[in-house]
């Protein structure tokens, strides 16, 4: 079941002085399934924050459609089971951490009893149980992020939008937040993670979309995005034998005595390559699709979409 759906979602910011409009989101169509960790990747200014803001009705939609829990974002009910940690947040600094959780709970329509039942657990979850009584203005960046995450979870949301959640956090803090995210996933929560930190998304996300200049240029599971199409790594005792690959089948990328890498025109041709090796009595230890890191895949997507059109 889709908890978030967008269809041809477009956001155009009209600039002042009539110098032209800025297209922040350009016909974005995507969906997020219940219980998955969805990563929205993109360089700065790609439209990631605008995407979340349109889904939460912080920014209006120019055209297209967006649905959260089957409801339009303009309907406040759509945000009843939604948590949000904004990027560069500035929570009311006159409140303490505990008061912020109570305030967030109140705004979410919770009763004092319901809020009290959750606050201690949430402060413990984000490692802030000792600092709940301290004013927010005295918090460090890392502490603010943690309390921000706690306030996003106070209403027991089905989906949590996190915009650059580990921004400004030290490596230990990042790891702790990652563990919180994994715990939330194990509890069946849906997480919409906005980040330009690829390794962070790769570590926790089930599915990813790459946004560039307001357009989704690639989408899929981490596996789908990191596997190179029809490229295989073959581990085999080739020794000094010569392996020729017919041109119509593809090409050989590399060849060593311990194996080779091939790029095929058709992935089914891998069977012919295996047959060819076996005919030469070469012992095959493994055949696996060639994988790249999410970072490589991201840069590939970025360079593909920035190449000038012919």
């Amino acid at each position: 079941m889709n908890i978030v759906e967008t269809h041809e979602l477009t956001k155009i910011y009209a600039t002042r002085l009539k110098k032209g409009n800025v297209v922040a989101l350009d016909r974005v169509t995507l969906h997020v399934e219940q219980g998955e960790v969805f990563g929205l990747l993109g360089p700065n200014g790609a439209g990631k924050t605008t995407m979340v803001k349109t889904l939460l009705s912080i920014t209006t939609i120019s055209s297209g459609e967006a649905l959260i829990n089957g409801l339009s974002p303009s309907n406040p009910t759509s945000r009843e089971k939604v948590g949000f940690l904004p990027e560069s947040h500035r929570f009311p600094s006159h409140l303490t951490g505990m008061e912020l959780l109570h305030f967030a709970g109140r705004l979410s329509g919770m009763s004092t009893v319901q809020i009290s039942q959750r606050t201690d657990m949430l402060l413990k979850l984000v490692g802030m149980e000792k600092w709940g009584g301290m004013k927010l203005r005295k918090y460090s960046k890392g502490m603010s992020q943690r309390i921000g995450l706690a306030q996003a979870l106070v209403a027991g949301p089905d989906i949590v939008f996190l915009d650059e959640p580990t921004d400004g956090i030290d490596p230990v803090g990042k790891m702790e937040i990652r563990q919180v995210l994994k715990r939330l996933r194990s509890e069946g929560k849906t997480i919409f993670l906005n980040s330009h930190l690829l390794s962070e998304v790769e570590a926790v996300a089930d599915r990813v979309a790459i946004l560039l200049r307001g357009r989704v240029v690639r989408t899929g599971t981490i596996e789908e995005l990191t596997v190179k199409d029809s490229q295989y790594e073959i581990e085999a005792d080739i020794g000094n034998k010569t392996i020729d690959i017919p041109e119509e089948m593809g090409r050989r990328i590399s060849l060593t005595s311990k194996g080779m890498t091939v790029a095929l025109n058709n992935s089914e041709d891998i069977n012919s390559i295996i047959d060819k090796l076996r005919m030469q009595r070469i012992s095959i230890r493994s055949v696996k699709p060639l994988k790249q890191t999410l970072e490589q895949s991201f840069f590939e997507a970025v360079s593909d979409s920035t190449e000038p059109e012919a």
Binding site: I58, V82, F84, H89, R90, L107, S108
Partner: peptide, 9 residues
């Protein structure tokens, strides 16, 4: 800050 308020129902 406004994001915090507007993200609530």
């Amino acid at each position: 800050r406004v994001d915090f308020y507007l993200s609530k129902p």
